[in-house]
Design a protein around this nucleic acid. Structure first.
Lengths: 119, 119
DNA sequence: GTATATATATGTAATTAGCATATATATGGA
DNA sequence: TCCATATATATGCTAATTACATATATATAC
């Protein structure tokens, strides 16, 4: 899984960012995996080469892991096209979402402190 | 190596941040490993439990790796206390430093975009 | 019918991070 | 003098994470 990359860098802990993205989106509406990754690719085109099965494999793994941890739940939806697993966020997921918001804000502050050193 | 952690999270790609920290500091003055880690612990007390040999082991490894990559160079300094390896930044290191500044700024923008989703 | 888009999933290698431990010098105190 | 502690650097090994390839199945457009 590639995630948030930039030039020569592997990327900063892609999974935490993708976890955050997933929980943030699911806190607004239900969605299935493919849909989430499409949205991710659309919103973060430069930071996320998140297209193709090779990348998405990792994405689906994150979703499965989040479900195991009780942060999201899923149900199968059949109908048009291949069956899709629709995910919703759980109360535990919402709690982690709030935590992640704090985390991301802290992270920004730390980056600012780091950038001060570079001036 | 622990690096930039936060509560239940392992932390976002510690080594990239520590690399950035090292290059940012060395672009101002020479320093040895122990000194760098002391400064890191002082400046980022909440994000970095960077004290003790267990943590520092990873730090010294990063320094060695940066030297192998030609981003920093070192010389031994003997005198008071145990011998220390004094590091300086190379032109290549300065170039990467500038790159990392851009990277960190981009990262902040991406985090902002991510946080918008959480509102 | 067959190429493509949609949709999910697994196997495995490579990389990164974490934690313990080893080594050596100097200093301060009992 | 002996011992604990601070300073200073380094390596071994395991665990966790990430990357990349590949498998599977359904529907649609040509």
């Amino acid at each position: 899984m590639r995630g948030f990359h930039h030039g020569r860098f592997r990327g900063v802990a892609p999974n935490i960012f993708i976890t955050a993205f997933v929980l943030f989106v699911l806190s607004r509406k239900e969605a299935h995996g493919y849909e989430l990754f499409e949205l991710l690719a659309e919103r973060f085109p430069n930071f996320c080469p998140c297209r193709g099965p090779s990348w998405m494999g990792g994405g689906y793994r994150i979703l499965r892991e989040l479900e195991i941890q009780g942060l999201i739940t899923s149900r199968w939806e059949t109908g048009e096209g291949p069956a899709k697993r629709i995910y919703s966020i759980t109360p535990e997921g919402k709690a982690l979402k709030e935590h992640l918001v704090d985390y991301m804000k802290d992270l920004k502050d730390q980056i600012d402190k780091l950038l001060e050193l570079a001036e």
